[in-house]
């Protein structure tokens, strides 16, 4: 009787833990970013790239219609993920003008989860960040595929 009870409790705990696992498996997209708020920066000037684990951050100045600039920070994948896509620490130097697609931060700050990036020479890069996980994510208006 006692054993059965223990087994039942252990089984229930495992189920609850299994249910909680996907949320714990990663620094979850939904905790910080809003999948319903895609953003696109047509003209973002790189100010700094933080080549760091667990997520690379690309800092840009975004030109505003009135001529002013807004500072934004774009989250990308890990250095390893970007490296495997042919990106390095020196790939984005301050002053480079790029196009960025991503999703805005939920807290209203000037941060976004980066999805795609287009370099001045037309090459595109999937930023490999946590993403929305939505199967039709790529249907959101985006940069053309170059490869």
């Amino acid at each position: 009787m006692r054993t059965k009870l223990t087994l039942a409790v252990a089984g229930a705990s495992l189920l609850i833990m299994a249910g909680a696992m996907p949320a714990l498996a990663h620094h979850a997209f939904a905790a910080e970013f809003d999948a319903n708020k895609p953003v696109r920066f047509e003209k973002a000037t790189v100010t700094k790239m933080e080549w760091t684990n667990p997520h690379v951050w690309i800092h840009v100045d975004v030109a505003q219609p009135d001529g002013s600039k807004e500072a934004w920070a774009i989250e990308a994948g890990t250095p390893n993920v970007l490296f495997r896509r042919g990106f390095t620490k020196q790939a984005l130097l301050p002053g480079a003008v790029i196009v960025i697609d991503g999703y805005r931060a939920k807290d209203g700050s000037h941060r976004a989860n980066g999805r795609n990036l287009r370099l001045p020479d037309g090459r595109t890069l999937f930023l490999g960040s946590s993403g929305t996980g939505a199967p039709d994510e790529l249907k959101v208006p985006t940069t053309p595929k170059s490869n």
Partner: peptide, 13 residues
């Protein structure tokens, strides 16, 4: 070196 690393950080983690 550690926070820029390709593997070390993930291995330590």
């Amino acid at each position: 070196d550690l926070h820029e690393s390709r593997y070390a950080y993930s291995i330590v983690e």
